[in-house]
Amino acid sequence: MTNARRPLALWFGAWLLGLIVLSTALGPMLWGLPVDQMDLAARNQGPSAAHPLGTDQLGRDLLARVLAGGRISLGVGALAMLVSVALGTAIGVLAGMVRWLDGPLMRLTDLFLSLPLLPLVLIAITLFRAPLSAAFGPETSIFVLVVTVIGATSWMPTARVVRGEVLSVMGRSYVMAARSTGTRGVTIATRHVLPNTRSAIIVSATLSVAAAIITESTLSFLGLGFPPDFATWGRLLFDGTAYLSDYPGRALWPGALISLSVLAIVYVGDGLRDRGDPRNLR
């Protein structure tokens, strides 16, 4: 019934996401204006040929800032997703395959799920900012910190979904057959379990990219996270809200890009799940 539309969603999502990723990756090279260049004579200007999205309250080009901000936001999203999916998959597979680990690992998952994440993230940033900053410099350190913190606090849904899939796969007759022939657990995991839980992992991965982008924006929006002069979408949105009634574009552009990226990623995830689901092929 919806089969005809679903590939469309996938293609639309992939196309939109590709466009956003490409333009943020190549944009700063093609659009030559530096991110931090201030032109105090050209403050608060509307869209023009020189500044297609206008300039902000310090005369910085908004297009350049949005493009540069996307690099950080998408970068944080992708890396945090890797951390969270790796953690979640490992915990889910272990819980599903090793019976005596199941209880403790799932209680740990419940524990993390019941923690209020935002305060936890704020505390982590307050505690670790200074030592990391000394080690990596202010910007890299906060990038590492944000990625780790988001990744380490968002693996729980993945772990739960993966465990469920693993349990159902473990009950299948071919896994029992493999077991009875003495195949080692690691081999069963890589040969049988992981391929069969692939679509669940991909879906959680896309969802966690979306969640990570939003968490990073929230942190920047709260004035934490990256230094104030460092453009990310969340930071731009935060700065833009002060001017919402006079220059709505300031907040709308980064806000729309956050929404569009998340939407595109969710579409891609949705489409991939449908593709990977063998029942859909019929």
Binding site: D36, M38, Q57, L58, G223, P228, D229
Partner: peptide, 14 residues
């Protein structure tokens, strides 16, 4: 954290 102060910071840094 305050919109005007962050603007001042950015300009003064420059």
């Amino acid at each position: 954290t305050n919109a005007v102060r962050q603007d001042f910071q950015a300009v003064i840094k420059e």
